[in-house]
Amino acid sequence: MQSTSSPTAPHLPTPNLSHLSSGQDYANVYEPAEDSFLLLDALEADQSLLLETVRPQLCLEVGSGSGVVSTFLAGQVLRTDSPPTDYNSTATLYVATDINPDAARATRKTWLQNGLPDHSLQLVNTRFTEGFHPRFCGTFDVVVFNPPYVVTDPAEVGSHSIAAAWAGGIDGREVIDQFLPMIPTLLSPRGVCYLVLIAQNRPDEVVSIMETHGLRGEIVARRKAGIEYLSIARFSWP
């Protein structure tokens, strides 16, 4: 990944997650791990792109889990004391969905714990964006999804519990493959989508699939974490 910032440039602070406990909350909600943090790093690396070019008015996170990603996007990446333009991040609306009701509640807790306003986050307990009015097609400026990408028995896919956070079935692609055709229906003309993948998901093939949907894709971040080779794919209109 190319970066113009100096290696000593300070990272944006990770959201405060002290209100979530390993015994209680993380029994039912995915605890942020290396995959989550690589996604935060990719969003941070794109801060200028997001603030200057995308200028998001409507953001969507599918599978928001603990809420760490949306909270970081809203509270750190887009909210800056010195916006490069007249972009007003407080006018941005956020939508977060999760199939797991405990995760949806955790998302709101994290959002509020980090001082973000309740009314700017629209939380819905659903699969992907099911139940949203069709007028929101093509209106999301930022779409983020850390999907269940782990290779598992297909029978484990489709629960509404914490297994929904990781169980990806064959090649870890079952939920990802349902989501891919939705990306072009969600993205606004200037929109960008970030998707977490591991090597077993075949990121290059995912990028090729999105090209058949007319979207340009690239891998913008990579990291080895334990046994996982993680990457972040970014999609946008050419």
Binding site: I99, P101, A104, R105, R108, L123, V124, N125, T126, R127, E130, G131, H160
Partner: peptide
Amino acid sequence: KDGIPNML
């Protein structure tokens, strides 16, 4: 429930 709509 708890201010969150369930559309499942």
